[in-house]
Structures are given as C-alpha cells and as structure tokens.
Amino acid sequence: MDLAVGVHPHRRHTLSRYLVALALAAAFLLSASTTATPAHADERLDAGEQAVVSADGDGLNLRSLPSLAGAILAEVPDGTVVTALGVQQRADGHCWERVTHDGQPGWMAAEYLVRLGGAIDEDADPCAEAASTEDQEDEEVPTPSPGDPGVLPVPPPGGWTVGLAGTSDIEALVEAQTFDVASVWMLDVATQDYDSYIVGAPAFVNEDGLPNLGPDSVVLMRRTGDKPGDLGEPAAAPADEAPRGVANVLPTPPADKFTIGVSGTNDPAVLAASQPFEVKLVAMLDVPSQTWLTYIPDAPDFAQRLARGQLREDSIVWLRAGAVFMIRRTASSTPTP
C-alpha cells in the first residue's frame, strides 16, 4: 500500500466562494483521514488479547513468517478481529505480531492492529522488547523457546503418522516420539514441495532441513521398519453423531493443488463449505490402518469414505482445491504489508 497521502486536484470555479468552500472541504477531509488513520495497539499485546485489523480499508496480509518474504496465508479485511499469541519480532522495517485468524496462526504487521476496545497511541512501540533482525548483529537477543514437541500417534512399522510439531526444534521433535522415526516431512502449501529431514543422515543431506518448522506446523513422520501385510480396516463411523466444532479456514493453495491443516470440525461437508476456495477433495490418513479416507463434495453417499465422526475436530486433513477465487483489487486496495 502506498503510505503517502494523496490530494486530488480540484476544478477551478469562476466564483471565489465556491473555491473557498471546496478548499475548506478538502482540508476537512484530509484532516479527518489523518486523525482516523489506524495505528498499532497502545502497547504490546499479550497472549489471548484481541485486536482489530485497521489498515486504511486496504486489509492486511497474514504471513507464514515475520517478514515480507513470508508466504501469504490469508488476506484479512479491515474490521476483522484476530487473537494475539504474545510474540513480537521486528524485521523488514515492521514490528510483526504473532496472531491467529480463523484458527490459522501467522504474522501480521503490528502497526495495523488496534487493541480491541483500547486506545490508539501513535508513539507506542509494541516491538520495543522484541527481537530485531536489524539489531541482532550489534547485541545478543534472547532466543525464543522452541515449544514443547508434539507426540504423534504411533504408526505400524514402516507406516506414516501425522500431527502438529509443537516445536521448532526438529531433533527434540524426533526424540519425543515413542517409536523410531525414519524421516519427517512438511508440505509447503505455496510451492507444493515437501521439505524433509532424514533421521541419521549426513549433515549435507539435511542441510536445508525444515526451515519453516514451528509449533503450529503439520508434520508427517515415517516409522522405521517394514510395513506388515494386513493392517485391518478403518474404524466405522459412529451412527447419528451430531456435528461438533467450528471448521478452520486453511491456507489457500494453488488451483488443483493441496493444503493441509487441522479440521476444527467432525463434519467433512461443513469443513469443505467453510473454505474460501472450491474444495474437490477432503482426505484424512487413518494411522492404524494406513488407509486414506476421503470425502468428495456433491458425490453420492456410496462414494464417500470419510464420514462425520471418523473425522474429528483435531484431525489433520488435506484439502484439494478446485477453483481458487481471487479477489480483484485496485492499486489502492492491496493488502498491507
């Protein structure tokens, strides 16, 4: 977004009183837009506090990293309420606030967030105590805690499991499992590449590793060993189970590609209908049987293999996009930053 304030030229009028009236009106509008320009919250946001996106009507990007280089997970309109996670970091000339939006964690520029019900303070700096990439060369900055590693469901030998990492420390994540881990994989939704970490491999194999691994990352793990021949069938769906939970909005993938995340609901139809893009397929890995259970929107019942109740609120799901609905924006309505 262009941060400069632009004033449109007025037409000349032969009558001076109209010229004066127009000048006064322009001054009033300019003054009003200046005083209404949103600023960041009056002080840093603590975990659990809510803030409102206020970016001059242009909306704000939710990014995967605290940087302009971070992938855009969502374009969030002005007036949307987000929840702070209590973490700030300074980079690329912005103070970045770690937030969740519709269940999706990410980073937003803090100067466009206003504390819900709070005052606006033009001079406040919510990143005053946060790590700064510009200052790291000059002073030692405390390293944030990587988080507690998640313990994933145990797969059969040679099989796969999936869950939330809970940490940014790949070695701690591997060590926390109750089975021998062969490899760890993570989908980059923007590029559709799977980044990998091979346990026990030489350093050059894991040179890139999982650079974007974080507590909220979804990871796949493969267990060492050879997969048994018969693992049985997936558990049947409970009869007449009521809908539960609130569907999460997952990062939008490219057309005809996949995204991944936590369902938030036990109803695959509700999950598919809640996305801002057309969903062609909902897929879930049943870890004990190593079977893919799938739901296809608008397909007949006999074609469905993933039902309400088999899907749980905390299930990890893959969604395949059909059409991706892009919002047409003018130059003055580009989300910032």
Rank of each mutant, 00 (worst) to 15 (best):
residue 286 D to F: 02
residue 91 A to G: 13
residue 310 Q to L: 15
residue 157 P to I: 05
residue 165 A to P: 07
residue 21 A to M: 06
residue 181 V to E: 07
residue 88 Q to M: 14
residue 332 S to D: 13
residue 328 R to E: 05
residue 65 L to V: 11
residue 18 Y to C: 08
residue 167 T to D: 05
residue 167 T to N: 07
residue 214 G to Y: 03
residue 156 P to Q: 09
residue 94 H to L: 04
residue 207 E to I: 06
residue 79 G to M: 08
residue 230 D to C: 00
residue 81 V to F: 04
residue 43 E to P: 04
residue 203 A to N: 12
residue 12 R to T: 04
residue 187 L to E: 02
residue 109 A to F: 01
residue 205 V to I: 08
residue 298 D to H: 15
residue 206 N to G: 12
residue 9 P to A: 06
residue 3 L to C: 06
residue 150 G to P: 14
residue 83 T to E: 11
residue 200 G to T: 08
residue 48 G to C: 04
residue 129 E to H: 02
residue 160 W to T: 07
residue 229 G to E: 04
residue 271 L to Q: 05
residue 91 A to F: 03
residue 186 M to P: 00
residue 15 L to Q: 09
residue 119 A to I: 09
residue 177 Q to Y: 02
residue 203 A to L: 14
residue 164 L to W: 09
residue 267 D to A: 03
residue 70 G to T: 08
residue 336 T to R: 09
residue 256 D to Y: 14
residue 17 R to C: 11
residue 69 A to C: 02
residue 10 H to S: 15
residue 240 D to C: 09
residue 51 A to L: 01
residue 35 T to W: 10
residue 252 T to H: 04
residue 263 S to W: 04
residue 90 R to C: 15
residue 35 T to H: 11
residue 167 T to R: 10
residue 315 S to K: 04
residue 257 K to E: 09
residue 146 P to Q: 01
residue 224 T to F: 07
residue 139 E to V: 11
residue 247 A to M: 14
residue 187 L to M: 00
residue 336 T to V: 06
residue 80 T to A: 14
residue 65 L to H: 14
residue 172 A to W: 00
residue 282 V to W: 15
residue 239 A to F: 00
residue 283 A to E: 10
residue 282 V to S: 12
residue 238 P to V: 08
residue 81 V to Y: 06
residue 320 R to P: 09
residue 85 L to R: 14
residue 248 N to Y: 00
residue 58 D to I: 10
residue 34 T to W: 02
residue 153 P to M: 08
residue 289 S to D: 13
residue 274 S to I: 05
residue 270 V to N: 05
